[in-house]
Design a protein around this nucleic acid. Structure first.
Length: 454
RNA sequence: GUGGUUGUAGCUCAGCUGGUUAGAGCACCGGGUUGUGGUUCCGGGGGUCGUGGGUUCGAACCCCAUCAUCCACCCCA
């Protein structure tokens, strides 16, 4: 018999891990609620057609497709089947797929439920997503995203708000040193425009995004491979040497993009965000204009965000941006949206690496009642009494040997045990042992409740 | 999808140049102890050495294939 296992890139979570994961989720959720976002959920699977084509060519490959039920092959047309054409038969054998992110399903949700929601609609959503990627450090095939998006308004105050949200959540998790990188797709469009390569904007942005990784030489090499002429590359080159603080870089970009209306609009939007953030201040985050930031999905049209924890070996932990026409794909035009996503699993890895998790001892059992096989009714009543006083309590199920019962308390880190022996049950005075100090005291039920009450 | 790494007990790993019955620590179970855990002592269960083939008198060890794993690239949270 083969050992049981789980699919590549997926994980089991033990109780000790879940307690910490829940802490991250609840910290994020608390801030989402504070900023006025409302919860929604969508199904883990969507129609394949809803997802395909929304994430670029690479994205399509990374979507998990779900096979149709029944004898699906018999319905495939002979020709595609004999040609062994995977893409050709895909739509015939799979009409459902696991969601790849929360944004596209949300766009679908907005279009479908447009008459039942009030715009601007601020929603948050904390659910798992699946990607058929090769797993590696900090990369899983099943992971949680925690999204907050606003649709139905193009007001820039939301960009400001989302920067504050990044700052608040990560600060509340105890992370002190992190950078929120911000850019604007209109600036990237402006760059493509002044080089006369507007149609190559994706190739250009993907290449310059890699600047800090492969260096100027590498970027130039990649641009050439994408058939960007040297004359255009020369115009892009100044980006590789940008230095200074945010406002200095903005000034340089203003000069560079002065002939691009689109580019100047992007600068203007960016300046607004900086101005308001300067007014309001940030707790721990460093907000940094990064012209090379281009990651993200093809649908961003305005602001682009990415958050990186400094001095940890984990990639970006949050992302986001504005997408003017996301719902347009599903038939609802003119609805602008802006949103961000917290990668809970990576944030977990960061908080773990930085040893920032608090202790969660109060969330586990506080008191174990040691079972001597005496008056069971009385024992159950005592158990009830503790629970009604909000003390996390359990009764050992059998009168097993003391060693076994105490070991159980030990394994679960239960700080107190109470001996429900014959004498105690009769007299009402119980022997309670502190499992940390080893100290034992005689107390009645009322006194114990008083002592352990949260 | 591309390149590399590693597969030995539930977990972490040792195992010499190919040599007889494959080991340790931790974990688990039982006992020393029928009202005292974590410390300690004694004992126990547990392995098709990832899988299939090849070389050899003989393979955990060498060769080939395959699967899995982790790391990196692409891309991304």
């Amino acid at each position: 018999m083969s050992k049981p296992s789980i699919p590549k890139g997926t994980r089991d979570f033990l109780p000790a891990t879940m307690v910490k994961r829940n802490y991250i989720f609840s910290t994020i959720k608390k801030s989402f609620i504070k900023f006025g976002f409302l919860p929604i959920e969508t199904p883990c699977m969507e129609n394949t057609s809803t997802l395909m084509g929304k994430y670029g060519e690479e994205g399509d490959k990374l979507i998990f497709k779900i096979l149709n039920s029944g004898d699906f092959l018999s319905k495939v047309d002979e020709q595609s089947l004999s040609e062994k054409n995977s893409n050709g038969i895909l739509s015939q054998i799979s009409e459902k797929a696991l969601r790849y992110d929360l944004t596209v399903p949300f766009a679908r949700f907005v279009v479908q439920n447009q008459n039942e929601i009030a715009f601007p609609f601020k929603r948050y959503q904390i659910q798992p997503v699946w990607r058929a990627d090769r797993p590696q450090k900090g990369r899983y095939r099943e992971f949680y995203q925690c999204d907050a998006d606003v649709v139905g308004s193009d007001a820039l105050i939301y960009e400001v708000e989302l920067v504050q949200l990044f700052d608040e959540v990560l600060s509340n998790l105890g992370i002190k040193d992190f950078t929120i990188k911000i850019n604007n797709r209109k600036i990237l469009s402006g760059i493509a425009e002044i080089t006369g390569m507007s149609d190559k904007i994706i190739d250009i942005t993907v290449a310059i995004d890699k600047l800090d990784k492969i260096g100027a030489e590498g970027v130039i090499k990649e641009l050439r491979e994408k058939e960007i002429p040297d004359s255009a590359i020369d115009k892009i080159k100044p980006l590789f040497e940008l230095k200074g603080n945010n406002s200095e870089i903005i000034e340089v970009m203003k000069r560079m993009l002065s002939n691009s209306e689109m580019g100047m609009k992007g600068i203007e939007e960016l300046e607004y965000v900086f101005e308001k953030i300067n007014l309001l201040g940030l707790e721990n985050a460093i907000l940094e204009f990064d012209v090379t930031l281009a990651r993200g999905l093809n649908y961003y049209t305005g602001a682009i965000f990415e958050v990186k924890a400094n001095n940890v070996s984990i990639g970006s932990i949050c992302g986001g941006g504005r997408y003017d026409d996301l719902t347009g794909i599903f038939g609802l035009k003119g609805i602008s949206g802006v949103g961000i996503s917290f990668g809970a699993d990576r944030i977990y890895d960061v908080v773990e690496e930085l040893q920032l998790f608090p202790s969660f001892s109060s969330e586990t059992t506080q008191l174990l009642l040691i079972n001597f096989g005496e008056d069971e009714n009385k024992s159950l009543q005592i158990l009830n009494q503790f629970r009604k006083s909000n003390i996390n309590t359990e009764l050992y199920p059998t009168d097993a040997k003391l060693k076994k019962q105490m070991s159980y308390a030990d394994a679960k880190n239960i700080p107190y045990v109470l001996f429900l022996g014959e004498e105690e049950l009769k007299s009402g005075s119980f022997n309670m042992k502190n499992m940390v100090s080893g100290e034992q005291t005689q107390m009645n039920i009322i006194e114990i409740i008083e002592k352990l009450k949260p």
